[in-house]
C-alpha cells in the first residue's frame, strides 16, 4: 500500500494531518469473504447489503456531526443582535449561490462555480509549473551532495515566506494581476516539491543505481526509468503539500488582485457586508480544496503502485 505516512519529509502541518488520515476501512468487504456460499442471488444481495452498510458507516457519522454543528450554529446565532448569520438566514439570503453554481447575470454577478473554475485555472497553471520545475530542480539538487548542502538552507528559509509576501514583488515584476497570481502560486507550491523530490532522489537505494550502471542507462533513461519512479512516493508527498498551499495562496492572492476568482468574491462580499455569501464561498473553497488534495493523493496512489516493495 501507499507508504506516505512513513515518509519523514512533510513540511506542512496541515497537509501532514490530511496525509496521515486513515483511508476508509474495509472490514465490510472482508466480512463478505467469510460468509458461507449461498445461491448466486443470495450472495449478490448480501454483497449489496455489505456495500450499502459500508457506505452508510462512512457517511452517517459525518452527516450526524454536521447536523449537530448546524443546530448549535443555528442556536448560537438566532438572537436578534447576533453578529454572524445563522444557517437559515444564509439559506434564504444566498439561495441563488447555493442552489445554482453556474448562473450568469452580468460580468460580476455569476455563480460560484464559475468563480471556482477561474481560480482553478490559475492554480492549474501555477501548480503545473511548480510541479514540472520543482521535480526537475529537485532531481538535479538531489544528485549532488554539494548542491543539496548549499541550497537546502536557502529553500528552507524561502518556503516559510507566506504566499502574500511574494505578491508585491510579483506585481512589480509582471505589472499585471493575472500572471502575478499564477506566479504567487508557483512560488508557494514549488518549495515542497523541490525539497521532497531532492530527498527522494537522495534516498534512491544504491542497488538501483548499480542496476542502471550495469545496463549503462544514459542520463535521460536514468531520469525516466529509475529516478522518477523510485522517488515517486516522495514526489507525490511534495505535490500534495504543494496543491494545498496553492489553494491557500490563490484565495489570498485573488483578494488583492481582483478579477472574478473566488478569493475576490469574498473580498467583494465583505466590502458590501454580504456575510451570508462569504459563508457559502468558504464552504465552496473548503470542498474544492479537499477534492484537489484527494485527486493528487489518488494520482499518487496510482503512480506509485508497487513502488514500495
Amino acid at each position: 500500500m501507499n507508504a506516505l505516512p512513513a515518509r519523514p519529509v512533510l513540511v506542512d502541518t496541515s497537509a501532514g494531518r490530511a496525509i496521515a488520515a486513515a483511508p476508509p476501512s474495509a472490514p465490510a468487504i472482508a466480512e463478505t469473504k467469510i460468509l458461507p456460499l449461498k445461491t448466486p442471488r443470495g450472495r449478490r444481495s448480501t454483497q449489496l447489503m455489505s456495500i450499502g452498510s459500508e457506505i452508510a458507516s462512512a457517511t452517517i457519522p459525518p452527516l450526524l456531526v454536521l447536523a449537530v454543528l448546524l443546530l448549535v450554529w443555528q442556536l448560537a446565532t438566532s438572537g436578534p443582535d447576533a453578529a454572524l448569520p445563522s444557517p437559515t438566514k444564509i439559506w434564504t439570503e444566498s439561495n441563488d449561490l447555493i442552489v445554482s453554481p453556474f448562473f450568469v447575470n452580468g460580468s460580476q454577478d455569476i455563480g460560484l462555480g464559475w468563480r471556482v473554475i477561474t481560480s482553478l485555472e490559475r492554480v492549474f497553471y501555477g501548480f503545473g509549473l511548480a510541479a514540472a520545475v520543482g521535480v526537475v530542480i529537485g532531481a538535479v539538487i538531489g544528485q549532488s551532495v554539494w548542491a543539496m548542502r548549499g541550497l537546502d538552507p536557502i529553500f528552507q528559509v524561502l518556503r516559510t515566506v507566506p504566499p502574500l509576501a511574494w505578491l508585491p514583488i510579483s506585481l512589480a515584476a509582471f505589472r499585471d494581476s493575472g500572471p502575478s497570481a499564477v506566479f504567487v502560486i508557483f512560488i508557494t507550491a514549488v518549495w515542497p516539491v523541490i525539497i521532497n523530490t531532492a530527498v527522494g532522489i537522495r534516498n534512491i537505494p544504491q542497488d538501483y543505481r548499480n542496476v542502471a550502471d550495469v545496463l549503462r542507462l544514459n542520463p535521460l533513461e536514468y531520469f525516466w526509468r529509475i529516478m522518477i519512479p523510485a522517488a515517486a512516493p516522495y514526489i507525490f508527498t511534495g505535490l500534495r503539500i504543494g496543491i494545498g498551499l496553492s489553494w491557500l495562496a490563490i484565495v489570498a492572492a485573488e483578494m488583492l488582485t481582483g478579477g472574478v476568482g473566488i478569493g475576490f468574491f469574498i473580498w467583494d462580499a465583505w466590502n458590501s457586508s454580504r456575510l451570508s455569501d462569504i459563508v457559502v464561498a468558504l464552504i465552496y473553497i473548503g470542498v474544492v480544496g479537499f477534492v484537489l488534495d484527494r485527486l493528487v493523493a489518488l494520482a499518487g496512489r496510482i503512480a506509485t503502485h508497487g513502488t514500495s516493495a
Binding site: 542496476v211 550495469v214 506509485t304
Partner: peptide, 14 residues
C-alpha cells in the same frame, strides 16, 4: 557484458 546478479536481487519494484 559483465552482468551482475546482486546479493539482494535488486529488481525494480515499479
Amino acid at each position: 557484458e559483465r552482468a551482475v546478479v546482486f546479493q539482494n536481487h535488486s529488481l525494480l519494484p515499479w
